[in-house]
């Protein structure tokens, strides 16, 4: 039972990050390896605003989300919209170079110690024999709410429907006169904002550090690939599943191989269902 809670908490962080990435990936179609840096900004801004500027936790998290969103906009408008002519691999390389630069700048600014934000609520509930720290409950609830909200957004709003159209038929969307750049920037902003939220919530319970970005990117890519690209609920459940597999495997089989369990799951899914666990169609 405890393993279930552990897996859901860790998995919710993966979910939040991966949902942001899946939105960016399906609408803009760039392999944005710098996505994890938005998580890092969310986490580090939350941390530094509390510890260095004495901001209360909630505004600090908001600030983190705002900065992560701004980072996403900069990536979209300043970088990826200018390199549309590059090959996929070129775009991947560009995002990797950004990871190198942003990561080093963050270490220069904030150091690279892993830190948890002070002042987060510290109660723990006992639910059916499992301990649930309240921060974990917040993370799980936020991921669920974000998943529902994002699903509603892409299904019920005009902007969301446009984005779905763009993800299904990018060329047609352009021919229809849709201002592609505008919606791509919006997808980047929302996706990065979600990643920033993931970082801000994460740092309440777990440590953030300046060099954490690329790990978060890797895990998010793993989630959206095995969950099936182009599906928000897929990314949500995929993130949870990854967290659960790591938790149960690590606890009952061998904690030294915790990471491997996720990757074995990924390989198994790719071989049995190449379009992903929850993906009917493939964008690949």
């Amino acid at each position: 039972m405890q393993e279930l809670v552990n897996g859901l908490a860790q998995g919710s962080v993966y979910s939040l990050t991966a949902m942001g990435l899946v939105l960016i990936f399906s609408v803009v179609r760039v392999p944005n390896f710098a996505h994890g840096e938005a998580v890092m900004f969310g986490g580090m801004l939350t941390l530094m605003s509390v510890t260095s500027f004495g901001l209360p936790l909630l505004p600090a998290i908001l600030l983190g989300v705002v900065v992560a969103t701004a980072f996403g906009l900069v990536l979209s408008v300043g970088v990826f919209s200018r390199v549309k002519d590059k090959s996929e691999i070129g775009q991947l390389m560009i995002s990797m170079a950004i990871v190198v630069i942003v990561g080093a700048a963050a270490i220069q600014l904030w150091g690279d110690e892993a830190r948890t934000v002070p002042g987060a609520p510290s109660m723990t509930f006992l639910v059916a024999g499992a301990y649930v720290p309240v921060t974990w409950a917040i993370i799980i609830a936020a991921a669920l709410l974000a998943a529902i909200g994002l699903e509603l957004f892409v299904r019920q709003t005009t902007a969301g429907r446009v984005m779905r159209a763009m993800s299904l038929r990018p060329d047609a969307a352009k021919l229809m006169g849709i201002p592609v750049d505008y919606y791509q920037a919006m997808a980047f902003a929302i996706g990065s904002g979600l990643a920033g939220l993931a970082g801000g919530l994460y740092v309440m319970a777990f440590p953030a550090q300046a060099s954490m970005g690329h790990i978060m990117s890797l895990k998010s890519f793993v989630v959206i690939i095995f969950a099936g690209m182009g599906s928000i609920s897929g990314a949500f459940f995929g993130g949870l599943l990854l967290g659960l597999v790591e938790s149960f495997g690590g606890s009952f089989l061998s904690s030294g191989y915790t990471n491997s369990f996720g990757f074995v799951l990924l390989l198994a899914v790719l071989l049995l269902k190449p379009n992903g666990l929850f993906g009917g169609r493939s964008n690949a």
Binding site: Q2, N6, A9, S247, G250, S255, T258
Partner: peptide, 20 residues
């Protein structure tokens, strides 16, 4: 007997296995 890699953020797995 549990293990983790340096820099691991989350130890719930190890703790659950030890507490059990």
């Amino acid at each position: 007997e549990e293990e983790w890699g340096s820099g691991n953020p989350q130890f719930a797995t190890q703790i659950a296995a030890m507490s059990r």
